[in-house]
Nucleic acid binder design. Structure first.
Lengths: 158, 158
DNA sequence: GGGATATAGTTAGCTATGCTAATTAATTCG
DNA sequence: CGAATTAATTAGCATAGCTAACTATATCCC
């Protein structure tokens, strides 16, 4: 029952504002349907969505260990282990072992990986652009702002 | 960058507003990360995300044929066929054959299915609530509005 | 030093969800 | 009535999520 620490001594039972309920449903539904559409575009790259997402982290945030990648992507280590193995098979990343800790390693996007990601992004943009173009400047700004609000919310989750 | 080479038609050069590019990336990323968080909560229901989403359509939009459900969920018929089979095994939906067309059938959420969905929704809300509570009324409204803009966009996709 | 403990990653095995191609069954059309 | 169409399923494959159990290395502490 949604207890939240408040400034007062006792935990308060927060009665969710009614709009919170419908907002959660609508955000959830929109996210699901958006990703299903995007998936159809990304299929053209021949690389699955989880691999693309992990690769994206590597390209934009630089090399990472498998564990750090798993944390960043909010999946468990074995899942990331397999994703990385697939990326490596496709030569989209390269692995370098940590000289100071033989258990550890750095995963780094290759030129091929970076190029593939940029092309995928390009393809996605090209497809999104036609649709986003039908939005007003204000609506687009609203979407972008909402995405940021969400990411901020997600960053401090839990 | 961001020309829209209309894959098929005349090479109309749409110069995307710069914010369109970053907006697409941010929306995409936010959607991926939101769903990974939500998935962890929904796992408690013991029913997969695709099943929950399909069930949600049935609960809120009423009975549907497998084909219509596949279209609504943007998946191919065999995929929906298996999702429906799983829902049926769990007694979350019931099937009635169309008396006028023996090939066709109606899928309808059972009381159990409706209850499970509401409970999952409740669980999601409880979890979201603490985080959404930190948003202002205006930010929340912005998120909900953005979700609607997205859904509208998606409805007329392609 | 050396055993106990902790940490990084992988392997094995299960489930769920996507797909395409081919199949079955029923309806509609010519 | 036979051919084409339509609705749904079956079969087979790949990706991606999980937990449990394993290997290898590092660190801690006596």
């Amino acid at each position: 029952m949604a207890k939240v620490k408040s400034g007062t001594a006792e935990p308060k039972t927060v009665v969710s504002r009614p709009e919170t309920v419908t907002a959660a449903d609508r955000i959830h539904s929109a996210a699901i349907h958006l990703l299903r559409r995007v998936r159809q575009q990304d299929a053209a790259s021949g690389v699955g969505p989880a691999q693309l997402s992990a690769l994206s982290v590597l390209v934009f945030a630089g090399p990472k260990t498998p564990g750090a990648l798993a944390t960043a992507e909010q999946v468990k280590p074995p899942t990331m282990s397999r994703i990385v193995a697939a990326l490596k098979r496709s030569r989209l990343v390269k692995i370098t072992r940590d000289p100071h800790d033989a258990r550890s390693m750095q995963i780094c996007a290759t030129v091929k990986g970076t190029r593939l990601l940029q092309q995928g992004r390009q393809r996605r943009i090209e497809h999104l652009a036609a649709h986003l173009a039908s939005l007003t400047r204000s609506e687009l700004a609203q979407l972008a702002a909402a995405a940021d609000i969400l990411e901020n919310l997600l960053r401090n989750w839990r």
